[in-house]
Nucleic acid binder design. Structure first.
Lengths: 219, 219
DNA sequence: AATAAATTTTAGACTAATCTAAAAATAAGT
DNA sequence: ACTTATTTTTAGATTAGTCTAAAATTTATT
C-alpha cells in the first residue's frame, strides 16, 4: 500500500520527470512538496526500499515503472475529479485544484472506473491536460506551445502548461479561454513577446512567459 | 482544524449517542474505532482540550454542541456521497460504505453545497438514513421499526437501522428493498419473530433481530 | 462491606512524517 | 587544483496516533 504522502511524492517526481530528461534533485522535490531537503532524503530511501523509485545517494532520483504506474493512477484520478467538479458541479477551472488534490487519494479502482464512465471517458481535463486511461496510457495529441507558432498562423487554444491561480485568472481577464481562436500577428525578436488576435476581436500583447504556457492546436 | 482521525472519533461518539441517553464508555468507542481502550483515552483527552467533547476520567464521554456540529458535517458528507455513488454512479447500496468512509473527510464547504444541489437536495441516503442540512438539522420523518408494527398493518419499507454487508445482502435475498410493501401477518409472542407478506407475494418468516432493523412508514 | 472482576487510565515505547543543526559530498570559481 | 559555495545526507528531536503491560478506579458478587 502507498500512503497519502508517498503518493504525493511520486506524483511530484513524475511531474518533474516530464520537464527534464535527467535525474530529479532532492531540492526540486523539496520545493514542490513544501518540505525540507532532509525530509525528502528520508522519503526517497523509503520509496527506494519499496522499489517505487531508483535512488542513489547524492545522485538524484528517478521513478521505476512501478512508481510511474502509481503516479499515473493518482494523476488519472486528479484529472477525472477535476472534470467532474467543472462539468457536473459547475466549478470554475481555477477553483478545482485544491479539492482534486484531496480527491485524488480516494482508494477504489471501481470508483475511478465508474466515474470515468459517468463523465463519458474524457480525454482531457478542464485545463487541457491529458487523462491517462486505466492502464496508464496518455491519449495522443499534437498540441504545441503558443510560443512556437509562426506569425499569421491561426490556432485554437486547447490547454495550459501551468496551473497557478494567478496565471489562470490572468488568462480569464484577457479572454484566453479553452477553445478560443488565436491568430499570431507579430513576434518581437529580442524578447519573443507577441501580439495576438483573440477570437477575431482585439489585438493583445502577451509575454513569452505567457505564450510558453498556452497549448494550441493548428488547424 | 479537526484531523481525519478526530473526525472519525466524533462520528462514532455521535452514533453511540443516538443509541443511548447515558454517557458513552471508552470501551464502546474502542470497539467501533477498531482501536484499544488506551488509545481512546488519549484521544478523548485531546478532543476534550479542543472542547469537542466533555469528558471526565472514568465517567465516559459526551459530545459538546461544537463536537456534534463537526460530527453532523461528517455524517452529512458521508450520506450525500452515498447518494452520489448509488444514484449517479450506479453502485449497489451495499457497496458504498467503504468509499463514503473516505469521501466524508474531503474538506470543502463549497463542494458539499454544490454536491447537495447536484443531487437535488436529497433528504435521505440510499439506506433511508436522514441527511442533515448544512446547519446540521435532520429532516423530520416519522418512521417506525418494523418490530413495533401491529398485525395486519400494511406499511412501506423506508430504511434500515443497520448497515453491515451481511444484513443488507440478507435483505436483498429475501426481497426486502426500499419502497416495498410489507404487511405483518402474525407475531409470535415468545420471541417476537413475525410472519410478513412482501409486496403482496409470499409469506416470509423474520426474526425480531431483523425486524428491529427495518424502518417503515405507515400509510 | 470486602473481595473479585471488569473497565479505564497511566507509563513507556513504536511508526510515519516532519523539523533543525551539523557533517559530508558534489559543484563552481578563481 | 584548491578553496568556496551549494546541495545533500546524517543525527537527533518532535508530533499524531497507536500499542502493551501495569496501575488505578469503578462495578459486581458473594
Amino acid at each position: 500500500m502507498t500512503s497519502f504522502t508517498e503518493e504525493n511524492y511520486l506524483k511530484i517526481i513524475y511531474k518533474l520527470s516530464t520537464e527534464t530528461e535527467s535525474e530529479i534533485s532532492t531540492n526540486a522535490v523539496a520545493e514542490l512538496t513544501q518540505t525540507k531537503a532532509a525530509s525528502v532524503t528520508d522519503m526517497l530511501r523509503k520509496l527506494s526500499d519499496k522499489q517505487l523509485v531508483s535512488y542513489q545517494k547524492y545522485q538524484g532520483v528517478r521513478l521505476t515503472s512501478q512508481g510511474q504506474a502509481v503516479a499515473l493512477k493518482v494523476i488519472r484520478k486528479h484529472r477525472l475529479w477535476e472534470v467532474f467538479l467543472v462539468e457536473k458541479l459547475g466549478f470554475n477551472w481555477d477553483e478545482v485544484h485544491d479539492i482534486a488534490e484531496q480527491l485524488e487519494h480516494i482508494d477504489s479502482e471501481e470508483l475511478v472506473q465508474r466515474l470515468d464512465e459517468f463523465l463519458g471517458f474524457p480525454q482531457f481535463d478542464p485545463h487541457g491536460d491529458p487523462i491517462p486511461d486505466r492502464h496508464g496510457k496518455m491519449p495522443e495529441f499534437g498540441y504545441k506551445n503558443l510560443s512556437d507558432i509562426d506569425p499569421n498562423q491561426a490556432v485554437i487554444m486547447m490547454g495550459v502548461a501551468q496551473h497557478s491561480v494567478s496565471f489562470l485568472q490572468h488568462l480569464a481577464k484577457v479572454g484566453l479561454n479553452l477553445g478560443v481562436d488565436i491568430c499570431v500577428k507579430e513576434i518581437n525578436d529580442f524578447d519573443k513577446s507577441m501580439t495576438i488576435k483573440i477570437g477575431g476581436e482585439i489585438d493583445y500583447f502577451i509575454s513569452n512567459d505567457v505564450a510558453k504556457n498556452i497549448l494550441v492546436k493548428v488547424y
